[in-house]
Amino acid sequence: MINRDVVFPPGRRALYEKNHYSPAIRSNGFLFVSGQVGSREDGSPEPELATQVRRAFENLNAVLHAAGCSFDDVVDVTVFMVDPEANFEKVWAVVPEYWGAAPYPTLTAVGVTWLYGFQFEIKVIAKLPDSGGA
Rank of each mutant, 00 (worst) to 15 (best):
D130A: 13
V95S: 07
F80Q: 05
A126Q: 02
Y116V: 00
V6G: 00
Y104N: 09
H65T: 13
H20M: 11
V77F: 02
G35I: 10
G43H: 08
E46D: 11
H65Y: 15
V63F: 01
N19M: 12
A56I: 06
T78G: 07
S44K: 11
F57Q: 00
A50R: 14
K127S: 15
T113P: 10
V33A: 11
S131R: 02
K18N: 13
A66Y: 15
V6W: 11
D42Y: 09
G68W: 09
D76R: 11
E41H: 00
W99E: 08
S131E: 00
V37D: 03
R12Q: 05
G132W: 13
T106P: 07
V110A: 08
A50H: 10
V63Q: 01
E17Q: 14
R26G: 08
S39V: 09
D42V: 07
E89N: 08
A14D: 12
P129E: 13
A134H: 10
G11Y: 03
V94M: 07
A62V: 09
Y21D: 00
V91N: 01
P105I: 05
F30N: 10
L128C: 07
A134S: 12
D5V: 13
G43C: 04
N28M: 14
D42E: 09
E58P: 03
D72F: 10
P96H: 05
R26P: 04
G68T: 06
E85K: 13
E46Y: 06
R54V: 00
V77L: 03
A66M: 13
D42G: 05
A62F: 12
L31S: 02
R26A: 09
A24L: 07
R13N: 02
E121M: 04
V91T: 02
L107A: 11
T51M: 13
R13Q: 14
T113V: 05
